[in-house]
Design a protein around this nucleic acid. Structure first.
Lengths: 178, 178
DNA sequence: GCTGAAGTGGGGTGCCCCTCCGTATCGTAG
DNA sequence: CTACGATACGGAGGGGCACCCCACTTCAGC
């Protein structure tokens, strides 16, 4: 890739991150191009559609979360580690406007982001399941979908709501006693 | 309301229902007006924004679900009734493209639809909680939000996935034994 | 420096939401 | 049955959007 192309690519991603934080996932692409100081054609050449741009923007953030999964895997309480990671995932996704929407958008859930997340969390789930703390019919895809769904639904209700609903969904609605 | 206004109103709602079933919640308003055989101005006079139109389209459907809640309240197993109703709600919402999105869209969850649903299900929840089958800190708003979130997330994965994930969220991820 | 390839961005296209305003239609009062 | 005021209509147009085309500029190796 030529030096100027790389420079424009980076500028666009930075501008997109700003715009998305400000306007959400449906920020205007032309506005992003304007902020980045490039023509709209340049943006569309680097990123053929909105999803590609969002993926680039969130890639770094998602990698952080995946790194946390690897860190947590080292601990000795697999179930607690899994819960902690899902909580962190929910917090990340909710505070990053538009991430949940972009992760669930479109008919194909095979986005690079979703794949990264599920494979990063797989080990955590396997350990928790091996310890008998998680039902065997639960997949990492299920859990990531659940976290994303709740994050999306509570985007306008604050992070506390996200955590509360997530905990509810993970524990179930029946009382601890029965 | 004048007779022709009523006629156009009905035509628009019918056309909108068709268009939404075909294209999802972000169907073109101009296209809807065209299908209904009215000018776009007429559509915008009857429905000042997209949310208002969606509300009108889904109102009847939501009323059916609310009616089912009242029917189920009559049964003698409150917990089973609650679960059944949430399942039905999920099925309705998923099969009606765009309903979940419209229910969760916008910063205000005080849409008429959401209010109708929560108040309709309140009685079911109260009975199930009184029977000790549901945690006391769970509100009907939580449950409706959860169902909508899962429906939205699984819109592209088929109704089976919705039911599976919903069951998972209601039961929790821990195995029945421990 | 020269040159071909790679990259750029202004302008154009078509669609969108929404509004204005002259016109047609409705319901009623006479 | 007619005339009239209120109501509703829709074509036209403004502003914005995503996306594409192509004449032009910039880069990097010779």
């Amino acid at each position: 890739m030529r030096a100027d192309a790389q420079r424009n690519y980076d500028r666009i991603v930075t501008a997109a991150a700003d715009a998305i934080a400000h306007d959400g996932a449906d920020a205007s692409l032309e506005d992003i191009a304007r902020r980045a100081g490039v023509g709209s054609a340049t943006l569309h050449r680097h990123f053929p559609n909105r999803a590609a741009l969002l993926e680039a923007v969130f890639h770094e953030r998602i990698e952080n979360v995946c790194g946390r999964a690897r860190e947590l895997t080292a601990g000795d309480d697999p179930y607690a580690a899994l819960l902690a990671w899902l909580r962190e995932l929910g917090a990340y996704v909710t505070t990053t406007r538009g991430l949940a929407a972009s992760l669930l958008d479109g008919p194909h859930h095979s986005d690079a982001c979703t794949v990264m997340l599920t494979s990063a969390g797989e080990e955590l789930l396997l350990r928790a399941a091996a310890a008998g703390k998680v039902r065997a019919d639960v997949s990492m895809t299920d859990l990531v979908t659940l976290v994303n769904a709740i994050s999306l639904a509570t985007e306008h209700s604050g992070p506390g709501e996200t955590q509360r609903l997530l905990a509810l969904a993970l524990e179930g609605i029946t009382p601890p006693g029965a």
